[in-house]
């Protein structure tokens, strides 16, 4: 329980850093670190396969996508950076306060105190994924196709 609390706090701090970082690249790195902490939490919740996916795909692939996108767009100059820092501080200083206030409020009210869970017999994730949810696999194939055609449509040069 204590370890969970610490991990969750680290997760939250990572997220706040991601949101408040001034340079976009740092935000992307913060997002990757958030993913890493999240996957540790998922390991602790016995969801090891999903955790591996989270670690490799979200922390790895998505950061690559973000950093590529960011590197294609224009970099800020030094003077830009300074004005931007002031602007961002003025916009984002309420966030930590709001979060702390919300946390205090939620813990104080013992937010969802009595929730009844319907327990079910455990099943292996591989069995679920491969034996009872074929339709989801088909859906994943379709999503990947959509993404592939999307990239073709967005990046191919038009022959004029």
């Amino acid at each position: 329980m204590m370890i969970d609390l610490i991990l969750l706090s680290v997760l939250l701090i990572m997220v706040i850093w991601t949101v408040m970082a001034i340079r976009l690249v740092r935000s992307a790195v913060g997002l990757a670190l958030t993913s890493v902490v999240l996957s540790i939490l998922m390991f602790r919740l016995n969801a090891s396969l999903a955790a591996v996916f989270e670690l490799s795909v979200c922390a790895g692939l998505i950061s690559v996508i973000f950093i590529t996108t960011i590197s294609f767009t224009r970099r800020m100059s030094k003077s830009d950076f300074k004005t931007r820092r002031r602007q961002r501080l003025s916009k984002f200083w309420p966030l930590p306060l709001i979060i702390i206030a919300a946390a205090i409020l939620l813990f104080w009210r013992h937010f969802p105190s009595e929730v009844i869970f319907i327990r079910v017999p455990a099943e292996n994730v591989r069995d679920v994924l491969w034996n009872t949810r074929h339709i989801d696999l088909f859906g994943q194939v379709l999503v990947l196709l959509a993404g592939a055609f999307g990239v073709v449509a967005l990046f191919k040069e038009n022959k004029k």
């Binding site: 949810r133 989801d136 088909f138 379709l142």
Partner: peptide
Amino acid sequence: IGMNTTVMLRDIFSIYLFVETIAIISFV
């Protein structure tokens, strides 16, 4: 394909999955 499958699905997560697929296609 996505729409035809969506119409025949009876599982809320699969419905979500196909809805999301169609949404990605609509952005493009």
